[in-house]
Design a protein around this nucleic acid. Structure first.
Length: 456
RNA sequence: GUGGUUGUAGCUCAGUUGGUUAGAGUAUUGGUUUGUGGUACCGAGGGUCGCGGGUUCGAGCCCCGUCUUCCACCCCA
């Protein structure tokens, strides 16, 4: 019985042309990571549930794919928990492993586990898939690649500066014409909460003001009061919505607003440092913007928060990142400040596709195809194929002596650049009839000439 | 997780108030052309109408469930 082929929701197959484009993105990112001094590592696609759970907030836990215990272990199922409707406890009893949700938490685990083998500050990059049990939507998948660069073991703001430059470099190299790097600082958000007298509600407050763009002031206020933020606190938040102008002017207004908050002032100072250094070093094509509503992202950020948006495209953020002072402490390692960024390769792919910005050269098509005219000719060509391949030129012979038309069509469909036609005449003359599939021109050449021509 | 939306040939889609054998374009394949492709003409193959129930004399079409698609929330790369 034939089964209808399909793949799980939120996942995709990639055809050769797509893989070529994806590799182009990865290698562009990888190259810049290495130029900035990061070394690659890899971690398993799944971790112990205990490593992941509780690190991303309640919402994050819900989106973690859990792996069912195999074999006899399913007998550990806590059926009482199921009867009581305690689904979290029940699922913990049948699952001890989970697919990684991002690359940052596994990295923190990695750092603690291998601390004796690393020298700090430790800079690593990692390009691997992650999984989220989210509802698929435009630019949201259940399996997608993140390209992360992080450094742990230093609280120097020079790294924040480096990461902003790195965003600019990579996205410029990918020819993305218009993008904005948004920067904020968690300490500024803490300062806001402090000024309001609701320091313990910082998370509620930041999530709400993150939506300012979307729901407006009324929407934010509504959400805040629904979540139990007091009237007096709301009044103290209101001046925040009046802040406007360019980054410099907003920053100075913010400085005033946070005058009485020490932590807020510290956030401002950090931000000023980063912006000033980036500004004096200069960027290629990024727009850089202080955005006080930028609060999105994982709730483990403690300092700088980054987010990158491609302008003119309907797509969520394509990159994110920030500083996290305490991530390794849950794994038993204190005083290890880390900062890092993540490129969302799949969203970048979608953006480049939408803007039609992939270079024509990314497709790694076959350079040369030998037409197969029969057994004699085939044997003769096999030697030539081997010789040409030894020069690093991609090359093959059509596998059977079918009609010329069919072989031509195959070459066409595959985007083969050149055709070699060798019949008895060519064998006798010791030449190769080389046909350029794009122009249709053909020319009789010696083997050496073909190799020289195609090597470029 | 909440609300809505979608599913017919490999792909893009028609298919009347429920009524004979479910169509088109494109792709595939054979030929016109046995050493010259991307064009044209002629022919051929290809469909459990997402899946499972139900209503009906009769379901691609109506009802329920389920999976998938896309969208808005939640959240996020």
């Amino acid at each position: 019985m034939a089964q209808k082929p399909s793949i799980p929701k939120g996942t995709r197959d990639f055809l050769p042309a797509e893989v070529a484009k994806r590799n182009y993105i990865y290698s562009t990112i990888r190259k810049s990571f290495e130029v900035y001094g990061f070394s690659p590592i890899e971690t398993p696609s799944f971790e112990l549930s205990s490593t992941l759970l509780g690190k991303y907030g309640e919402e994050g836990d819900r989106l973690i794919f859990k792996i069912l215990n195999s074999g006899e272990k399913v007998k550990k199922a806590d059926l009482d928990a199921l009867k009581e409707g305690n689904l979290a406890r029940f699922s913990n009893s049948i699952s001890e492993k989970a697919l990684r949700y991002d690359l940052t938490v596994p990295f923190a685990r990695f750092v603690v586990q291998h601390q004796n083998d690393l020298s700090f500050p430790f800079k690593r990059y990692q390009i691997q898939p992650v999984w989220r049990a989210d509802r698929p939507q435009h630019g949201r998948y259940q399996e997608f690649y993140q390209c992360d660069a992080d450094v742990v073991g230093s609280d120097s703001l020079l790294y924040e500066v480096d990461f902003v430059l790195l965003f600019d470099e990579v996205l410029s190299n990918l020819n993305i014409p218009d993008f904005t790097i948004k920067i904020n600082n968690r300490k500024i958000l803490s300062g806001i909460a402090e000024i309001c007298g609701e320091a313990d509600k910082i998370f509620t407050i930041t999530v709400a003001i993150d939506k300012l763009d979307k729901v407006g002031i009324e929407g934010v206020v509504k959400e805040l009061s629904e979540k139990g933020v007091s009237e007096t606190a709301l009044e103290k938040i209101m001046p925040l919505f009046d802040i406007s102008g360019n980054t410099d002017s907003r920053l100075s207004q913010m400085k005033e607003y946070l005058a009485k908050s020490e932590i807020g002032q510290e956030g401002i100072r950090e931000l000023e440092f980063v912006l000033e250094k980036v500004n004096s070093l200069g960027v290629k094509s990024a727009k850089i913007e202080f955005d006080v509503t930028l609060a999105r992202g994982l709730n483990y950020y403690t300092g700088a928060i980054f987010e990158v948006k491609a302008n003119g495209v309907k797509m969520g953020s394509i990159c994110g990142g920030g500083r996290y002072d305490d991530l390794t402490s849950v794994f038993g390692m204190k005083d290890m400040s880390g900062v890092g960024i993540s490129f969302g390769a799949d969203r970048i792919y979608d953006v480049i596709t939408e803007l039609d910005l992939f270079p024509d050269t990314v497709d790694n098509n076959l350079e040369l195809l030998f037409v197969n005219f029969g057994e004699n000719e085939q044997n003769y060509c096999l030697t030539l194929v081997k010789e040409i391949r030894s020069h690093g030129i991609s090359c093959e012979i059509y596998p059977s002596a079918v009609k010329m038309k069919k072989q031509m069509k195959y070459a066409n469909d595959r985007g083969v650049k050149n055709l070699a036609l060798i019949g008895q005449n060519e064998i006798d003359a010791n030449t190769i009839l080389l046909k350029n599939m794009e122009t249709g021109e053909q020319k009789s050449m010696l083997l050496e000439e073909v190799i020289t021509l195609l090597k470029n």
